[in-house]
Design a protein around this nucleic acid. Structure first.
Lengths: 228, 228
DNA sequence: TCGGGCACGATTGTATACAATCAAGGTGGC
DNA sequence: GCCACCTTGATTGTATACAATCGTGCCCGA
């Protein structure tokens, strides 16, 4: 198992290490609470300590690791309350992004979303679930970009990473239901109605009414899920 | 004008440079679009390029600078639409934080908030407006921390930095009105009602009804403001 | 005169070497 | 035996040196 980052990444270098470490954290390779020694990481990913340190700085700002001076970094651990907060925050921001997207989306983005829906149809028919998950991520990524707001896009993307991280253990559920809703989202975007876009995405996220109320137990029992 | 970072910072080092550069960006010392050459920064802040690079990685993740491989970093520029989005996002997240704080706040945090209100009374009576601005930042910082969610705290803090950045030109308005509302917030927190806390903070932020609707022109004309 | 191509300078990305700091274990005294 | 103190090892933080890459301006030819 060699995780060293190849020379093929489009970015200069350390960015690739950042992605590699982040992916390994999300996939559980580096468990929450685990200490990440710089030299061990540099050996594992095949670069020196400098890119590793820069990657850790990025991951710290993103909230995946915690850093204490002269005491090293550890993988962050999200307790249940924080996981619920992530769901709540996402249920606020992604509808906002959809409302923006309904007004600001470019034709290219709309076309890309339609293309993804079509690809998902094929993947679903062929029963390729892994493909479906990847397409799902892409769909929400493009949807966020369509908001036209860099801040919103980055926040939503990072929230989805965190969601994937939290729910990484319980993998492939509900992967097939969501694409009919995705198609609906595309249609609403095309209509250009921001309020309707926000409502549809709110329902899609799986967490309706109750804006600032802590998620009620029943909603949690529904187990909202990154695969939507 | 010597901006070099002193040895007295509580953190090991590069963290201090991060704060210094961020402050200078917010204060407009480094204008939006300006190129930040690493060597120039290391000379200016009195450290080598390594801490500078790490600081830039943090600031990139926070959205203050943009980085392109082998092309250097430039200070990010927020257009009007993005500025409005910041207001909107904040108007969603800070009430959520207040609702959490109403349930989760610690006695220490509540005491600290009351103390800040009292200090603001004195500062107001003495007419020290700069002191008031600093206390205002601290108040909202502690309020965010009282949410008990690391994610929420960091998001809200970063949003306030960005707001301060955007509205940095037009400085000392409305600094005196907000503290009566701050006192009200403390009272609501103490009562422990999350919905009421969210409503009060929403009103305090200055942007009421219309959750996912783009801010209407009238609301923008009111000129929402970090000094609240 | 204008366009293509190449060499050069400047800047970013990376690696190695060194200094500062912390934690743990040993040692001496009581 | 126990506690304070120090020493030592390991790890982080920083500085310097080197490699990779990009933009620029000059040169040359048509």
């Amino acid at each position: 198992m060699d995780s060293r980052v190849g020379k093929d990444g489009r970015d200069g270098g350390a960015g690739g290490v950042t992605r590699a470490i982040r992916d390994d954290i999300i996939r559980g390779v580096h468990a929450p609470g685990a200490r990440l020694a710089e030299e061990a990481l540099s050996a594992r990913y095949g670069v020196s300590r400098v890119p590793v340190r820069e990657a850790l700085r990025t991951l710290e700002a993103e909230g995946f690791v915690a850093r204490r001076p002269y005491a090293g970094v550890v993988v962050a651990a999200l307790d249940d309350a924080e996981a619920e907060d992530l769901v709540e925050i996402r249920s606020l921001l992604e509808p906002l992004g959809a409302a923006r997207a309904a007004v600001r989306h470019t034709p290219e983005q709309l076309g890309r979303l339609k293309e993804l829906v079509a690809l998902a149809d094929d993947a679903l028919a062929a029963g390729r679930l892994e493909e479906l998950a990847r397409l799902n991520s892409r769909f929400h990524e493009v949807l966020a970009q369509a908001s036209g707001s860099r801040t919103l896009t980055e926040l939503i993307t990072q929230l989805r990473w965190k969601m994937e991280w939290v729910y990484t253990a319980k993998l492939p559920r509900r992967a097939q239901d969501s694409w009919s809703e995705h198609r609906e989202i595309v249609a609403v975007l095309e209509s250009g109605d921001p309020d309707k876009a926000a409502r549809v995405v709110t329902r899609h996220i799986g967490k309706g009414r109750g804006a600032h109320r802590p998620a009620d137990p029943q909603a949690i029992a529904m187990d909202p899920d990154p695969e939507d």
